[in-house]
């Protein structure tokens, strides 16, 4: 076993330091070391997207990132989406549109969709489907997820424009 390495990060806007072995993935570090179990492991080889987190300015599959690589980086996980007891508009839309059944893929979809809406506040269906192609769901058949993301996009844009008007 290699010596553990100290890693300094910012997770969901809070400074977090942890110790990990170089071989441990960021996913393992988040779940087993830091105790943030919202991020899920699916395939473990980058195909399914359930372990998606935001790392710096882009999303990644955290199973294909070493924990040590996150040193000095800022990370957003699904735990960072809600404000206290107020759900993020994407989380509300997923509930309202029944965009989940078993829920394993949901944290990854939420983080990926959040990054999409930050880049394209009003994405087309095609943009949404291509952006989310790295996230697999075996329950919903995707249509409900796409509708939820589009509803959340409208909600966020409307709230922002109302806020600007006041």
């Amino acid at each position: 076993m290699s010596a553990k390495v100290q890693v300094q990060t910012t997770i969901n806007n809070e400074p977090v330091e942890f110790l990990c072995e170089p071989r441990q993935s960021l996913l393992e570090c988040l779940r087993d070391v830091v105790g943030l179990t919202g991020t899920k492991e699916g395939c473990g080889d980058g195909n399914c997207g359930s372990c998606t987190v935001k790392l710096g300015d882009r999303i990644v599959t955290s199973c294909l990132v070493l924990g040590v690589e996150a040193n000095g980086e800022s990370i957003t996980t699904v735990e960072g989406l809600a404000h206290g007891n107020t759900l993020h508009p994407l989380q509300k839309a997923f509930l309202e549109h029944a965009a989940l059944q078993c829920g394993i893929c949901t944290p990854g979809f939420l983080i990926a969709a959040d990054a999409l809406l930050q880049k394209h506040p009003q994405p087309t269906e095609e943009q949404t489907r291509f952006w989310l192609a790295n996230n697999l769901c075996r329950c919903t058949g995707y249509d409900k997820i796409i509708r939820a993301v589009q509803a959340a996009a409208t909600e966020i844009t409307t709230t922002k424009s109302n806020g600007a008007a006041q």
Binding site: V60, T61, A133
Partner: peptide
């Protein structure tokens, strides 16, 4: 190449 997450790396 891959999807959005893969292209991030």
């Amino acid at each position: 190449i891959g999807g959005t997450q893969i292209q991030g790396r």
